[in-house]
Measured scan of single mutants.
Amino acid sequence: SYYEILDVPRSASADDIKKAYRRKALQWHPDKNPDNKEFAEKKFKEVAEAYEVLSDKHKREIYDR
């Protein structure tokens, strides 16, 4: 789930989600993982997609249904 990707509970606040996104984006940024760039790019995209949905109140409500 998007919550698992960002490592936050379903009850996470918008601020918690933003902090988790920043932490995970740094962790999986391809430039930070030169030895495993392809895998890092995949993870980085997953993190971005999760944040896009969970950071938008309307999209998150739909996702949580």
Rank of each mutant, 00 (worst) to 15 (best):
K18P: 01
D15W: 11
D56R: 03
K45A: 12
E38L: 12
A50C: 01
I17G: 00
R22L: 15
K42Q: 14
F39E: 13
R22E: 15
E61R: 05
L54I: 03
S55Y: 06
E52S: 13
A40H: 05
I62C: 12
E61I: 09
S1M: 08
S55R: 11
E49H: 09
R22T: 14
H58I: 15
K19G: 07
P9R: 07
P34N: 09
D64Y: 02
A12V: 04
E41G: 08
L6F: 02
E46R: 05
R65W: 10
V8I: 13
A50G: 01
S1D: 15
R10I: 11
W28D: 01
H58M: 11
E61F: 07
I62N: 11
S11E: 13
L54H: 00
P34I: 10
E61G: 06
K37E: 07
Y63V: 02
L6S: 00
V8K: 02
R60H: 03
K45R: 13
F39H: 11
I17H: 00
I17W: 00
Q27D: 07
A25P: 00
V47R: 01
V8T: 03
Y3W: 03
S1H: 07
A12H: 01
K57E: 15
N36Y: 08
D15P: 06
A12Y: 02
S11F: 12
K18H: 15
E49I: 10
S1G: 14
K57F: 09
A12R: 00
D16N: 07
K19E: 15
A14E: 15
K19L: 14
L26T: 10
A50I: 03
N36Q: 14
I62H: 11
N36V: 06
Y3D: 01
E4F: 10
E52D: 14
I62S: 08
R10T: 11
K24Q: 09
E49L: 09
K37L: 12
E41I: 11
D56K: 04
K42P: 03
P30F: 04
D64L: 04
D7A: 09
K59V: 04
R23I: 14
N33L: 05
K37G: 07
Y2A: 03
D7H: 07
A25V: 14
D35C: 13
A12T: 02
I17K: 05
I5D: 03
L26M: 11
K59D: 04
R65E: 10
K59S: 06
D64W: 01
E4K: 11
H29F: 06
W28F: 08
E52Q: 09
F44V: 04
Y63A: 02
P30T: 06
S55G: 15
A48N: 13
K45C: 10
A48V: 15
Q27M: 08
N36E: 08
Y21C: 05
S13C: 06
D7W: 04
H29D: 14
Y2N: 03
D15E: 14
A50T: 01
D64V: 01
Q27F: 12
V8W: 00
I17D: 00
A40L: 05
E46M: 10
K37H: 09
K42N: 09
E52P: 00
K32G: 09
A14N: 11
D56S: 05
K24F: 06
H29G: 09
S1Y: 08
D16Y: 06
K19Q: 12
F39Y: 14
Y3F: 03
A48C: 15
R22W: 14
A48D: 06
Y63F: 04
Y51W: 09
E4G: 09
A25I: 13
Y3T: 00
K42I: 14
F44D: 03
I5S: 05
A48L: 13
S11Q: 12
N33H: 15
A48R: 13
R22S: 12
A20S: 05
L6Q: 01
H58E: 13
D31V: 06
R10W: 11
K57M: 10
Q27L: 13
E41W: 11
E4Y: 09
K32A: 15
K43Y: 10
R10F: 13
D64S: 03
K59H: 06
D56Y: 02
R10S: 10
E38V: 10
Q27K: 08
A48S: 14
A12C: 09
E49T: 10
I5Y: 07
S1L: 10
E52F: 10
D35L: 10
Y51C: 04
F39T: 07
L54G: 00
F44P: 00
R65K: 15
I62D: 13
A14G: 12
H29I: 06
P9G: 10
S55H: 08
K18Y: 14
S1A: 10
K24I: 06
K37S: 10
K37W: 12
E61C: 11
P34Y: 08
